[in-house]
């Protein structure tokens, strides 16, 4: 447990001091959401219909772009070698790193999402659903994205490749997440969707670190 805490503390401290790591995805989220009314017109009714989908897709993209940096700096400065050679099990280490990364990217994204919901005319009934579905969903996105980030960290041009690898795997999260918001807007109960997202979360946390660990070993061993 102290291992997990030490890793999370170091990563979050570094990310807080650097600043851009947690602020850039947020700025991206806000900017791209602001592009949509410009692209499809300011009609509040139309925006309200599209808002759940737009918010979820943009949050997903922001989370994915942020994931690219998850292992990048550790790879560049060789701390990743220390991680692999520490003799401690890799599973909690990569999980801690990924969760720390989520605290710096996915969590702020979820917290500002109601604000953007207001900008995009999302009915108030959907706000809680948006916040909760993003809070759970972005963890899954971070964990799945970490697999892609670990696979591409050793490559010079990782960014676009990462999206090709990861986006198809994001689809279930997008489906359940945006559906939760839509259902809430329609006034029905969205607990089933949240429960499904929770199931995805548990499955991802149980299995993905194995793939992340294996991928990191491969990326370092080139």
């Amino acid at each position: 447990m102290s291992l997990v805490w030490a890793i999370m503390r170091r990563d979050m401290l570094a990310s807080l001091r650097r600043g851009s790591e947690w602020s850039n995805p947020l700025i991206f989220f806000v900017m791209v959401c602001a592009l949509f009314p410009l692209g499809i017109g300011p009609d509040p009714k139309q925006l309200a219909v599209l808002a759940p989908g737009i918010l979820w897709v943009v949050a997903l993209l922001a989370s994915m772009l942020a994931t690219d940096s998850l292992f990048r700096s550790d790879f560049d400065d060789a701390s990743l070698e220390q991680v692999l050679l520490s003799g401690s099990p890799l599973f909690p280490q990569v999980l801690a790193k990924t969760l720390a990364h989520w605290c710096m990217t996915g969590l702020p994204l979820s917290l500002v999402s109601p604000l953007l919901g207001v900008l995009l005319q999302l009915p108030t009934s959907g706000m809680w659903a948006l916040l909760l579905s993003l809070a759970i969903g972005t963890v899954v996105l971070s964990v799945i994205g970490a697999i892609g980030a670990a696979l591409t960290v050793g490559l010079r041009k990782g960014g676009l490749l990462l999206s090709l690898i990861v986006l198809p795997l994001y689809i279930p999260v997008l489906i359940f997440g945006s559906s939760a918001v839509q259902t809430a807007v329609e006034g029905a109960s969205y607990t089933p969707q949240l429960a499904l997202l929770g199931a995805l979360l548990l499955g991802a946390i149980a299995l993905a670190p194995l793939a992340i660990g294996a991928a990191l070993r491969i990326s370092v061993d080139q």
């Binding site: 890793i7 170091r10 650097r18 400065d77 060789a78 701390s79 520490s86």
Partner: peptide
């Protein structure tokens, strides 16, 4: 293997925790 924004103490605390 150092994070430039962290101090030597913080960097080494991390290394020690790993081991």
């Amino acid at each position: 293997g150092l994070k430039a924004v962290l101090s030597p103490l913080e960097n080494l605390r991390w290394s020690c925790a790993l081991r």
